[in-house]
Each structure stands twice: as structure tokens, then as C-alpha cells.
Design a protein around this nucleic acid. Structure first.
Length: 415
RNA sequence: CGGGGUGUGGCGCAGUUGGCUAGCGCGCCGGCUUUGGGAGCCGGAGGUCCCGGGUUCAAGUCCCGGCACCCCGACCA
């Protein structure tokens, strides 16, 4: 990626209408564009980050044997009426509209009902189960108040997974495997040390649900964390009987702010019964499918990552989600060598951004910090005189001169 | 949805008790110089002062009504 060709630009000033750090930095560096309150477009750099996050999630989902699909945004009213979730009094985030023939439709804020209705046509026998399907969808939610930049929007990308099992036992096994997979996802995007499995309200269906909460002051939730057990409990269910049940002691808990980056639910057979989702078991008996629902807020995750790692200079991406691994800053006298290095890295499949613009050194160095690419390589007459390429990790202060061989080796190993 | 704040070139802002042709910085275009932490000088382009009504000789400025954005709260199966 050539910065000379990239249409987005960094800004000196931070947007005045944003307070949230994630939105300020992402807009300033040209990752996202604000369309309206709570609605942000993904620009080329931002899209790359989102795709990185998606592929990390996709890998874990596929390893669990889940199948990816893509449902529709327009949804049928009658499906949601069956489960009593069409009424605005029951679900207050609906966007609704009408077809030309006056038939009402909804915009998908979740997909449990439509996806289960669809699966009803395929899951007839115990031989068809288990079935686990997921998608990356743009969810539309008419939030009364958008806030916290991309962490609480009206339009956002979510990975949602739905599981269909023959029994509670089969469901529980899968449910637990999702917990492990989610923990790996958060570890792989760089948030492993800050993200904790959290007991939360189970709603109408089960005693508890599980959330994945990442520690950040920018979060909206208050959780109580047992650091040694690496388990937390959401404030909303913090009661003595609950603590006893989940094996936590009040005295071991630390009150912290966190952002909910994932959430998983068991529905049991309640929803299946509402939606008439039954299968025939080995004896030919009709039984309700056991349902589970599992979400990860993909774009929220991007915001949380920015919140967690950014410093005074700008964004700091973990390697795994960075839009590129290397940022070459071509300073005076280093133009030609920069080009050679760029081509060579491309040929080695190292994702590289090259700042080949005709601007001052200071601006290039500042932009490199702002964009937050893990490794910066400065090429200039000075670096070349000193023996090659000056490298600096985004997370570190020190620079180091290496020759091309060492550099290629370093980047090859890091991948 | 309740409370508070803010709307002026792409971005960040100034504009006094209403008064001349609406300014400044950044960015943008052209030229010369410069080249390791957001360079300098010269010249230029760019405006529905959020929208609608009203008061006035005169409105960015005052009044009324909308809208948008931000923050706090409520909400967040």
C-alpha cells in the first residue's frame, strides 16, 4: 500500500465532535469515516483491520466445525411475532419499514428468529444434528443514544453463531468449546491478558449467560474480577447466592470497568418450541432442538483494541490485526532503497505500507506513529550511511540499524 | 426519552453592547527554498455563518420554531 496513492489522509486536528478515544484516533488516522451518530464507514485501512479480526474469528469457528453463511438484513415481521419480539415494547432497538404493498419488515438487529426458521427446513432428523452456523453481519440497532465511538453504534459488524443440538449434553459440550474458542480469539487479537469470562444474567432462558469482558475504562460495564481465577461476575448478578454458585468469594473480587466484546447464551428448548423447531430422534419421537447463540462484536473489538493500546502518538495495533506489518518511511536520500525494499517485502508476502509521499520527514514520522503499524523502517541517506535500515517497533522507543538480510530474516520469522 | 453543551470554507477555531467587503490557523493549488519529529517565504482557490420564520435602516450576532452533533442519566433479549 502506497501512502502516495491512498486517498485517505491523516489529520493534525482531532475531530471536535468525538470524545471517545477510539473514534478520535480512528478518524484522525483515516481508518473510519463518520456518516452520522453511531454510524461509521470503514475506510481502506479500517476495512483491513476488520478483515484481520474476521479471519481470526473465522479460523476458530471453522475449527469447531461451524459453517459460514450470510442471512439477510430485511426480516419478516411474523417470525418475530411468534416469539413476541416484534413489539417495540419488547425490543426497543428495531428499525422497521414497509414494502410498497404496505407489508411491514424489520431490519436485522439479531438473527436468531430468521435463521432458526430457515434451519427448520433442513433439520428434520437427529442425523442432521448437530448443526452450527455463523455469519458476519451488519446489525442495525436503533439505539436511543449512540456513544463511545464505534463501541456502541447503530450499525456495526457482528459475528453471530447459532448452535442446534439434539440434547442438553450435546449443547453443553459445544457451548464449552465455544468458550475456549472465544478465549483463543481474544488472545489472538492481542487482548488475551485483558479479557475475562464473565457470568451474567441469563435472561428468561437460563440461569446465566457468559460474557467476555475486556478491561478498559472506555467500557460500559462494571464487573467484579477474580484475577487469580481469571473469572468475573457482572454487577447485574452480583449476589451472595450467585457468588456461592459460581464459586467466587466477595473478598477476592476487584471492581473494574470493562467492555463486553462477546456474549454467549443458551436458549434450551424454549425458542425452538416457539418457532416449532423439532427433529425426530432415533425412535421416531419428536423433540425440540436445543439452541444456543454466540456473538462477538467485530467492530467493537476494533474500538476496544484502539482503546487498550493507543499511546500519545496514536494507534498501536497488535501484529495480528494491524493493516500491515511494516511501515516504510522513505526519507531524504532513501527513496530508491525504500522502493527496492517495498517490492522485496511484497514479494515475500509481508504486508507493507510505504510512505512515498513528497512531504517533510517530521510529517512522515508522525504519521507512522498515528497509523500504528507494528514495525517502522526508516530509509534515508543517514540510515544507509550507517549500514542500512533503521527499524523501530511501534511499542518501543529505541531504534536499531539492520542490513536488508537481517531485516528480511526478522520479518520472515515474525510471520 | 429527560438534563446539559455545541453548530461559522475539508478540519480546528475567533467574531464585543446588532454596523463597513466574515476573519485566523491547519489542509488544498502554483512558485522558490528546505529535508530525521507535523519546514519557510511569496502568490492563489475555497463560505447556504445548521435550517425556517420573525424583529430591525441593518442579523453570524437579537426573538420563536425545527434539525444535527457531543456529554451525563435512563435503556442495552
Amino acid at each position: 500500500m502506497r501512502l502516495s496513492k491512498l486517498f485517505t489522509k491523516t489529520r493534525k486536528e482531532i475531530p471536535a465532535d468525538e470524545v471517545a478515544k477510539n473514534a478520535r484516533l480512528l478518524i484522525q488516522a483515516g481508518y473510519i469515516y463518520k456518516e452520522m451518530a453511531g454510524v461509521y464507514a470503514l475506510l481502506p485501512l479500517g476495512l483491513r483491520v476488520v478483515e484481520k479480526i474476521k479471519s481470526i474469528i473465522r479460523e476458530e469457528m471453522n475449527n469447531l466445525g461451524c459453517q459460514e453463511l450470510l442471512m439477510t438484513s430485511l426480516q419478516r415481521k411474523e417470525l418475530w411475532e411468534r416469539t413476541d419480539r416484534w413489539d417495540d415494547k419488547e425490543v426497543d432497538v428495531w428499525f422497521k419499514s414497509k414494502l410498497k404493498n404496505n407489508k411491514e419488515v424489520g431490519f436485522g438487529w439479531s438473527h436468531e428468529e430468521p435463521i432458526s426458521e430457515m434451519m427448520r427446513g433442513y433439520l428434520k432428523s437427529y442425523k442432521d444434528l448437530p448443526a452450527n452456523v455463523y455469519q458476519f453481519q451488519t446489525k442495525l440497532r436503533n439505539e436511543t443514544r449512540a456513544k463511545s465511538g464505534i463501541m456502541r453504534g447503530r450499525e456495526f459488524v457482528m459475528k453471530d453463531l447459532y448452535s442446534y443440538s439434539v440434547s442438553e449434553a450435546e449443547h453443553d459440550k459445544f457451548y464449552n468449546s465455544v468458550i475456549d474458542a472465544y478465549l483463543r480469539v481474544f488472545k489472538n487479537v492481542g487482548l488475551g491478558k485483558k479479557t475475562f469470562l464473565t457470568f451474567a444474567s441469563g435472561g428468561a432462558f437460563t440461569e446465566f449467560s457468559h460474557e467476555f469482558q475486556t478491561l478498559t475504562e472506555a467500557g460500559e460495564d462494571t464487573i467484579y474480577l477474580d484475577r487469580s481465577k481469571k473469572i468475573a461476575i457482572n454487577e447485574e448478578v452480583l449476589r451472595d447466592d450467585v457468588l456461592k454458585k459460581v464459586g467466587l468469594k466477595r473478598s477476592d473480587l476487584e471492581k473494574v470497568r470493562a467492555s463486553e466484546v462477546g456474549n454467549i447464551f443458551s436458549f434450551g428448548s424454549v425458542k425452538s418450541e416457539q418457532l416449532n423447531l423439532y427433529f425426530s430422534d432415533k425412535k421416531g419421537q419428536k423433540k425440540p432442538v436445543i439452541l444456543g447463540s454466540y456473538g462477538i462484536g467485530v467492530t467493537r473489538l476494533m474500538g476496544v483494541i484502539v482503546e487498550c493500546f493507543a499511546d500519545d502518538g496514536g494507534i498501536v495495533w497488535p501484529k495480528s490485526v494491524a493493516p500491515a506489518q511494516v511501515h516504510i518511511a522513505a526519507l531524504h536520500g532513501g527513496e530508491k532503497e525504500s522502493e527496492n525494499l517495498y517490492v522485496e517485502l511484497q514479494n515475500n508476502n509481508v504486508e507493507t505500507i510505504i510512505d512515498d509521499r513528497e512531504i517533510s520527514p517530521g510529517e512522515k514520522l508522525n504519521d507512522a506513529d498515528m497509523l500504528g503499524i507494528p514495525m517502522r523502517v526508516v530509509v534515508s541517506s543517514k540510515s544507509l550511511e550507517n549500514g542500512g535500515f533503521e527499524i523501530k517497533k511501534r511499542t518501543e522507543k529505541e531504534t536499531k540499524i539492520v542490513n536488508k538480510k537481517e531485516l528480511l530474516q526478522m520479518l520472515g520469522n515474525s510471520n
